[in-house]
Simulated scan of single mutants.
Amino acid sequence: MTSLQTFHKIKDLQDREKKTKQKIYQEQVDQFETVATQLFEVLKEKEKAEEKFQEELKKATVQAQSFILHEQYIEQLDYNINLLQPKVQQARSEMEKAHQNFSSAYIEVKKYEKLIENKRVKRELWMKSEENKSMDELSTRQYLNYKNR
């Protein structure tokens, strides 16, 4: 029967690998959140700028220069949005990939934990069986010794 220590060493190795992958996953989540927050802020800024300009249009007449400045500002925000969207998608895909790696490492650790538990149970059953055999043999000897007297 293979030593449980061997399986414990393998499980420990897998556990270290899992922790490394978990750390990488957390870093990817943080990176995604940072980029997604930037995109959210730009989108929010664009929405506020458009609402503000609409309010100005409702209140009074607006100069042509204001239209031009507003349009340039919106174009700049759109440009920033178009730059950030691929970054968000890339960060999301990297985060999902890191999550898959972390999940597979977690599953491997669980497999070894289950394997160790099964081996431990088998060993206990085997030891109990050997103990019972030994007790039966001892009991038989005592009976035979008692009968031979």
Rank of each mutant, 00 (worst) to 15 (best):
T2C: 07
Q5I: 08
F7W: 15
H8I: 12
I10A: 12
L13T: 10
R16Y: 06
E17Q: 11
K19Q: 08
T20S: 07
T20P: 02
K21I: 01
Q26F: 06
E27D: 10
Q28P: 02
E33N: 12
V35Y: 15
V35N: 13
A36S: 15
T37C: 01
L39Y: 15
E41C: 01
L43I: 14
E45I: 04
E47R: 02
E47L: 09
K48C: 02
E51H: 10
E51Q: 15
Q54P: 06
E55M: 10
E55Y: 07
E56F: 02
L57H: 08
V62R: 03
A64K: 08
Q65E: 07
Q65L: 12
S66R: 10
F67L: 00
I68R: 15
I68W: 05
E71S: 15
E71K: 15
E71F: 14
Y73K: 10
E75F: 05
Q76F: 13
Q76K: 15
L77R: 07
N80D: 09
L83D: 00
L84F: 00
L84R: 01
Q85H: 05
K87A: 07
V88G: 14
Q89H: 10
A91L: 02
A98L: 06
N101Q: 04
S103T: 11
A105P: 08
A105E: 03
A105D: 09
Y106K: 14
Y106D: 06
K110P: 01
K111L: 08
Y112C: 05
K114A: 11
K114Y: 10
I116G: 04
K122D: 05
K122G: 02
K122W: 05
L125H: 08
L125Q: 08
W126D: 13
K128A: 12
S129V: 01
N132W: 02
N132E: 06
N132F: 05
N132G: 00
K133I: 02
S134Y: 02
M135R: 02
M135L: 07
L138P: 05
S139T: 05
S139R: 04
R141N: 09
R141F: 11
Q142M: 02
L144V: 14
N145P: 01
Y146Q: 03
N148W: 08
R149E: 05
